[in-house]
């Protein structure tokens, strides 16, 4: 236990450096857990689709993937900025990240869901191909939306001046989470758009 115990509220209180370390571990453990969730979803995809995939809009898929990857860059930039007390760049970069995140969701849910043959919402009859597609993109989009909300909260805290090189954990946490969701898509994208031979209503 830290030597400067008496500096804190009660015996055994935790020093800020250690708190940061524990926060990081906690978050990584949570992401490990999430990895199992997305792993399970991927397993379901391969179990049910095997070496086939539905006909999807390749350009749109590539576009949303690029958007998400670029957003990760801006998130990284925002995190670095706040660690260097550059509030202006932090706010700019995180805003770009948020906008890109929203664009991604709009691309997947707003456009691809309309085009792709998904039964429950568009009446298209494409059985298991629509179902898994809806499920994978839906679960991922849910996490992106959560991420966007987190980013908005962090941006708001930064805007209020609550974040600094001393107190950057919220920004770092949001960034790690954002990168994680991004990496998940890096696995989902090929599983949905690239792997296996195309089957579909037109084939």
């Amino acid at each position: 236990m830290a030597a400067d115990t008496h500096a804190h509220e009660h015996p055994g209180a935790i020093s800020p450096a250690k708190r940061l370390k524990m926060n990081r571990v906690g978050l990584w453990l949570f992401l490990l857990s999430e990895t199992f969730l997305f792993g399970g979803i991927l397993v379901s995809r391969f179990y049910l689709w095997g070496a086939t995939r539905p006909e999807l809009n390749q350009n749109l898929g590539l576009a949303v993937t690029l958007i998400l990857l670029i957003s990760s860059y801006f998130m990284y930039r925002a995190e670095t900025a706040i660690k260097h007390d550059d509030r202006g760049d932090f706010l700019r970069s995180i805003s770009v990240t948020i906008i890109l995140g929203i664009l991604f969701v709009a691309g997947v849910v707003g456009l691809e869901w309309q085009e792709a043959p998904i039964k429950p919402f568009t009446g298209g009859e494409f059985g298991i191909y629509g179902d898994i597609f809806f499920f994978m993109t839906g679960m991922h989009a849910f996490h992106v939306v959560t991420g966007v909300i987190l980013l908005m909260i962090v941006a708001y805290r930064g805007y209020k001046g609550h974040l600094s090189s001393e107190n950057f954990w919220p920004a770092e946490a949001a960034a790690i989470y954002w990168h994680f969701v991004d990496v998940v898509w890096v696995f989902f994208f090929p599983a949905l758009y690239l792997m296996g031979s195309v089957v579909g209503p037109g084939h």
């Binding site: 049910l48 039964k119 298991i128 179902d131 499920f135």
Partner: peptide, 14 residues
Amino acid sequence: LFDLGFFNPAEGGN
């Protein structure tokens, strides 16, 4: 809820 077919063999589920 959405009448999906993950576990419905008639729709290719398993």
